[in-house]
């Protein structure tokens, strides 16, 4: 997994509440899909008109935001389906961080699994970053520093945030969770042996 330390760039605003993972990528695009190349489908119902042309009103189609590494979101960003393709699609667009007042749980987990940082800030702070960016979009840069756990706004204001310590460590180092868990294989097998004796009813049915 890609490590995450500091990301800097223009922050694209998408402040509406309840942006669900169906909006981020329709399920039809994910039938048997792999992890790569999904960026072209990201927000496709909003990015493109019915005839396939770009919708110029959608922020990610506007010049300073096309290459944004940071997305500003509203409440409950990423709610809905557990599809990890939503994160893959955003990553493929070049995004590394979403800043929002709150996130769908499964989406936030999926972010951490893919080197993408979900940052929770108060709605007023997210709105202020959007305002400062909009004031001079072409040279307004926001920084997200995971090491220090601060967001530096375009005006230089530092806003602290907190990330679960375990997730932060894993992201900073780009850790592979499966490899970590595999080191505990003996513990897992011992637990299973104990549990088979303690709860035979949980194990008997599957042996039939």
């Amino acid at each position: 997994m890609d490590a995450f330390t500091t990301i800097t760039g223009p922050a694209a605003p998408l402040l509406r509440a309840n942006v669900d993972t169906d909006m981020i990528i329709p399920a039809q695009r994910l039938i048997g899909a792999g992890r790569d190349g999904l960026g072209r489908f990201a927000f496709e119902r909003f990015r493109f008109n019915a005839d396939g042309s770009e919708n110029p009103a959608f922020p990610l189609n506007q010049a300073p935001y096309r290459a944004s590494p940071i997305l500003l979101g509203g409440e409950n960003f990423g709610c809905g389906s557990s599809r990890e393709g939503a994160v893959w699609a955003l990553r493929d667009l070049g995004l590394r961080c979403v800043i929002a007042p709150s996130f769908g749980d499964i989406f936030a987990n999926n972010c951490f699994q893919n080197g993408m940082l979900p940052v929770r800030l108060a709605a007023a702070d997210v709105a202020r970053i959007a305002e400062q960016t909009a004031a001079s979009p072409s040279n307004a840069y926001t920084s997200v520093d995971l090491e220090r756990q601060v967001v530096v706004t375009p005006n230089g204001e530092e806003i602290p945030f907190t990330v679960d310590a375990r997730k932060r460590g894993a992201l900073l180092e780009g850790l592979d969770e499966i490899a970590l868990t595999m080191k505990r294989r003996a513990e897992i097998l011992a637990w299973q042996a104990r549990d088979t004796a303690a709860r035979p009813w949980a194990w008997d049915p599957v042996s039939r």
């Binding site: 393709g85 499966i178 868990t181 595999m182 897992i188």
Partner: peptide, 16 residues
């Protein structure tokens, strides 16, 4: 769960 966590479960029968 998402795809990465699913891979974790299939490989280890556990989840963090």
């Amino acid at each position: 769960i998402g795809a990465s966590e699913l891979t974790h479960v299939l490989a280890t029968q556990t989840l963090m």
